[in-house]
Write a protein that binds this DNA or RNA. Structure first.
Lengths: 338, 338
DNA sequence: CTTGTAATCTAAACCGTTTTAAGGAGCGTC
DNA sequence: GACGCTCCTTAAAACGGTTTAGATTACAAG
């Protein structure tokens, strides 16, 4: 039997309406009445039932982060910074953040993303939605949301189409940065440990690798391109393959840091002086590459910025704004040990 | 003008009550009626207003993670695994997880944690609560929750008192493990880079260091104990101090991995063969220590387990159970590079 | 033709707020 | 004394569902 507004009203000798007015500072209430009400609130320890308030107001001040990722992956391991900044940005706008992770399957069948999203839009629990997806988001999957006018932002994927806002990272540009760095150092024999076929980010980084070489007129050697699966072990295997090629490459651009770490380990085990004889370059900007020996230069994904911008856009759309889409640049980083 | 249950009822030619019955599979409804209702639901794309449902049922199927951490720290950087497992465990029990971060201050004054928690308990938005706090939690701060019978679990801190459940990690035991490892290797000159004074976890680890030496009858040397602030740079400074002592220690037990990394860097810069001439040991089990050269053995905090157990206990309490408190052991890990 | 029983369905109360139109009190003016 | 104005307060209608007691119908049995 929690205390309700009626209890307060009774104790203060006024109507519930008056209590509501006092508590929300609306209408004109005499000092005397205000005092009585506040006293009663204090005495009873009354806190409004936010559920009821939300129902009548039709607002919840809550947004949802819906993450579509493979069940075996962990959301906040890679996206930790994103979550941090989403949390910070939404709460500073006075919104709460709820998080739900949806895998590829639901009740045994492939998850119907479209249905799931429609559910979210219609259940009235959320005023807005971040869609974070590991795999590409198709326009039809979000078209219902657009039609309903439900505010949402796609994070980390691009979805072209009217009425959809996304915030993405410029993987192609970042990879071009990496290549520019290596080329400026005079490397011409640059290998690439690429990510899995069909993975959009892997493809973009791969394309940047190719384009950079082509623009410089450097011939592309098939044997310098090895595919990994983004995990460290595959970086090791790839590096072993690369060390069999002749002439040896003088630099290896890895599609992510984990594989770069694996590559570094193999190179060192073989007695190669890394960065003197062979430069290894990563992608992502995970913590661990700061502390390898030597540290691995990399291209940092602005995950914090991603969340911040996504939140700004969502807030704007919630307030009825147009919204927009943004592609964020990566930043090249070289770590020192001091 | 969203579709409501009344719209469905009108279209199906029945009463709202019947629609509700059909949708929740209660009461007895004729096949004919059921079909008509389902058809109307389908045609209108009706989704119940969960807000309204929650209000009448008095349940929300939502729990809150309330994190009290310093504003400048990032929740999911260190607690990423915890969040992952909380997310997984709550959702597998059919609950949603909402997260809110509260700093040390609110509107300029120190945050009144007690008031904040009471708010959460009374606003009826959540059925349960995880309290994650960087600094110690005092019993009076949660006593209101106990009195109200609001289900909650304190994570990563211990709070003794009737009716409170907590899940904590055995830092003392973990540090004893670390020391046992070093002592078994025959080390007698073991230094300690400790964490900040007054920090509970730092103190526990420090105490374990002392106790282990005392039990072995090894004299404690003041100059072998240096205080850091848990950051890498302070680990570097501490190591520099330690390298001035004579005789040199043969092992350094660091109160966390970050400082261990700093210590490792300095040792290598000075040409010390780490693990041959000087063993460095960490604490926490962060990703980066797997990939330093050499990898730093450490004691892993079971953050994933922490979340899992905390969720189990919270669910039990929500269902009216007694709840309990658990202290989880750490695990010693040595990484290989393969 | 009653009566009883089971099968369906619905009216109406309820959940705890907010909001608004209208009611009443007090008071100065003409 | 009637009128018009402020001020303050409240009754009542939402918000969109769930739940329950009881109405209605159909039908078999007596």
């Amino acid at each position: 039997m929690p205390v309700t507004i009626k209890d307060v009203a009774r104790l203060a000798g006024v109507s519930p309406a008056t209590v509501s007015l006092v508590l929300s500072n609306k209408g004109q209430v005499s000092e005397e009445t205000r005092r009585k009400v506040l006293e009663a609130v204090q005495k009873l320890g009354y806190r409004p039932n936010v559920l009821a308030r939300n129902l009548v107001k039709g607002k919840t001040r809550t947004v949802l982060l819906c993450a579509f990722i493979r069940e075996d992956r962990k959301l906040s391991t890679f996206y930790g910074d994103l979550i941090n900044s989403l949390l910070a940005a939404t709460s500073s706008s006075g919104y709460y953040l709820q998080i739900v992770v949806k895998g590829e399957f639901f009740n045994g069948h492939p998850l119907d993303k479209r249905e799931a999203l429609l559910d979210i839009a219609r259940n009235r629990l959320f005023e807005g939605l971040f869609i974070l997806s590991h795999w590409p988001v198709q326009y039809p999957e979000v078209s219902d949301l657009v039609r309903e006018g439900f505010p949402f932002v796609v994070v980390n994927q691009r979805v072209e189409g009217d009425g959809v806002s996304y915030v993405d990272i410029d993987h192609y540009g970042g990879a071009r940065e990496a290549m520019r760095y290596l080329l400026e150092q005079g490397h011409t024999r640059i290998a690439h440990i690429r990510g899995p076929q069909g993975h959009r980010h892997a493809e973009e980084r791969y394309r940047a690798y190719l384009d950079a070489l082509i623009e410089r007129g450097i011939p592309i050697r098939r044997e310098y391109i090895v595919e990994g699966d983004f995990r460290r072990l595959s970086g090791r295997e790839a590096m072993e393959r690369l060390l069999e090629t002749r002439p040896l490459p003088t630099a290896v651009f890895c599609a992510n840091d984990k594989m770069a770490i694996g590559a570094l380990q193999v190179a060192k085990e073989r007695g190669i002086r890394v960065h003197e004889d062979l430069t290894i370059f990563g992608f992502d900007g995970i913590e661990a590459v700061k502390y390898t020996d030597p540290p691995i230069p990399t291209v940092e994904q602005p995950l914090g910025e991603l969340g911040k911008v996504a939140a700004e856009i969502l807030m704007e759309r919630i307030q009825g704004g147009e919204g927009k889409s943004v592609v964020l640049p990566c930043r090249l980083v070289e770590w020192s040990t001091v």
